[in-house]
Simulated assay, not measured.
Amino acid sequence: MSVKHRYLWLLLAISLPAYANECPDAPFRSSFLQPLASDLERPAQEWQAKLAGIAATGIETLYLQWSVYGDLDLSQDTGIGFLTGWLDQAHSSGLSVHLGLVADADFGTRITEPADALSAYLSDLRARSLAVAGRLDARIGGHPAFAGWYLPEEIDDRSWADAWQVDMLREHLRAQVETLARLSPAKTVSISTYVSGARSADQFEDLWRALWAAAPHLHLLLQDGAGVGALPRAEFNEYAQGINQIAAGQDRYWGMIVELFSQESGPPLDDAPFSATAAPIERVRQQLDAVAALTPGPDETIAFSVPEYLLDPTRPGQDELLSAYRRLYCRL
């Protein structure tokens, strides 16, 4: 990073302009955002308005779900140019950002392969992600909006059933977290996990005890699954309580991802492309009540996602959800 860029970002850090949080009672302070290659073509003014709108709902932290996915690569020159300006805009709106690394669309299939193939796959994925992290850190590592890393590989309760699989996953996460900590010691590292009922709550708890033992500083974000309806709420609460108890007993950081959508098509429902509508506010309030009932509860409650389902007017049901959300949590 050039001295000039560090100086400009220092000025940004000490002169953050005020932004309008219209929803001081909002239940979320964090949200995911899924970038696409087409987003690089958006005019800067459009992104500025979008980020300001996100901040106005009470969001202070964005998890950019990936930096590399399909034909999007934010770690190369064109992507870095976009990301630099985008982080400036995020910062001016009062937002901090966690940068996702490499997301592989085939991850769910590849992790079911035999031992040798799985070991080679995880090693290659890890090398790719760490190379991306190195390029990003070299160019934007000192940006005041950049708060942490996010690992896009989502850990499920089905694929890591055998001890040898858990051992490989432990090593995969340990190596990534330790390398990222050396690269940027002040940044956090997060990953998400979800349950389908394939294993018991006790088995899921055992999995995360093992993984957290290998990477104790890893921030765990548990998807509540309400959008896909994988589990009845009472059954899911057993899994959430298990994670809550480990975190409380071992001083681990965890967050709950509250899904703001209702899936209409796509796996695991069917083989069609994924589609979803914005969730009804009554269901979202039930999800939030379930989070509030956990003691001591998560360190963070994250929406999935404010940009897509609360603010995108092309999403079916968005207007109803936003109107109800504003009545409950915002200044009218």
Rank of each mutant, 00 (worst) to 15 (best):
residue 1 M to N: 13
residue 2 S to P: 11
residue 4 K to R: 09
residue 5 H to C: 11
residue 8 L to A: 12
residue 14 I to D: 14
residue 16 L to S: 14
residue 17 P to R: 04
residue 20 A to D: 06
residue 20 A to S: 12
residue 24 P to T: 08
residue 25 D to R: 10
residue 26 A to K: 07
residue 26 A to M: 03
residue 27 P to K: 02
residue 33 L to R: 09
residue 34 Q to C: 06
residue 37 A to W: 06
residue 38 S to P: 12
residue 38 S to W: 13
residue 40 L to M: 15
residue 41 E to G: 12
residue 43 P to L: 14
residue 43 P to F: 13
residue 44 A to K: 13
residue 48 Q to S: 13
residue 53 G to R: 12
residue 64 L to Q: 14
residue 66 W to L: 15
residue 71 D to C: 08
residue 71 D to S: 09
residue 72 L to Q: 13
residue 75 S to R: 13
residue 75 S to T: 04
residue 76 Q to G: 12
residue 76 Q to R: 12
residue 78 T to C: 07
residue 84 T to H: 08
residue 85 G to S: 13
residue 92 S to G: 05
residue 93 S to Q: 09
residue 97 V to I: 02
residue 100 G to V: 05
residue 107 F to L: 05
residue 109 T to F: 07
residue 109 T to R: 10
residue 111 I to Y: 02
residue 113 E to C: 05
residue 116 D to Q: 15
residue 118 L to Q: 15
residue 121 Y to S: 04
residue 122 L to F: 02
residue 129 S to H: 10
residue 130 L to G: 15
residue 131 A to W: 11
residue 132 V to E: 02
residue 132 V to K: 05
residue 134 G to A: 14
residue 135 R to D: 12
residue 138 A to G: 12
residue 139 R to Y: 01
residue 139 R to G: 01
residue 140 I to D: 12
residue 145 A to D: 06
residue 146 F to D: 01
residue 147 A to R: 03
residue 152 P to G: 11
residue 154 E to F: 10
residue 158 R to V: 06
residue 159 S to N: 03
residue 160 W to D: 01
residue 162 D to Q: 11
residue 163 A to S: 11
residue 163 A to K: 11
residue 166 V to D: 02
residue 170 R to V: 01
residue 176 Q to I: 03
residue 176 Q to R: 14
residue 178 E to Q: 08
residue 183 L to C: 03
residue 183 L to Y: 01
residue 189 V to H: 05
residue 193 T to I: 07
residue 194 Y to I: 03
residue 199 R to Y: 00
residue 200 S to E: 11
residue 201 A to K: 04
residue 202 D to N: 13
residue 203 Q to K: 01
residue 206 D to S: 12
residue 209 R to Q: 12
residue 209 R to K: 14
residue 211 L to N: 02
residue 212 W to E: 01
residue 215 A to C: 10
residue 217 H to G: 08
residue 219 H to V: 08
residue 226 A to E: 06
residue 231 L to Q: 00
residue 231 L to G: 03
residue 236 F to M: 15
residue 238 E to V: 13
residue 239 Y to K: 12
residue 240 A to N: 13
residue 248 A to K: 09
residue 259 E to S: 01
residue 260 L to G: 03
residue 262 S to A: 10
residue 272 A to L: 06
residue 275 S to Y: 03
residue 277 T to R: 11
residue 278 A to N: 02
residue 279 A to R: 00
residue 280 P to K: 10
residue 282 E to R: 13
residue 288 L to W: 03
residue 292 A to K: 08
residue 292 A to N: 11
residue 294 L to N: 04
residue 295 T to Y: 09
residue 296 P to F: 02
residue 304 F to T: 07
residue 305 S to D: 08
residue 308 E to V: 06
residue 308 E to F: 05
residue 309 Y to L: 03
residue 310 L to N: 05
residue 311 L to T: 04
residue 313 P to V: 09
residue 316 P to C: 04
residue 316 P to H: 08
residue 319 D to C: 04
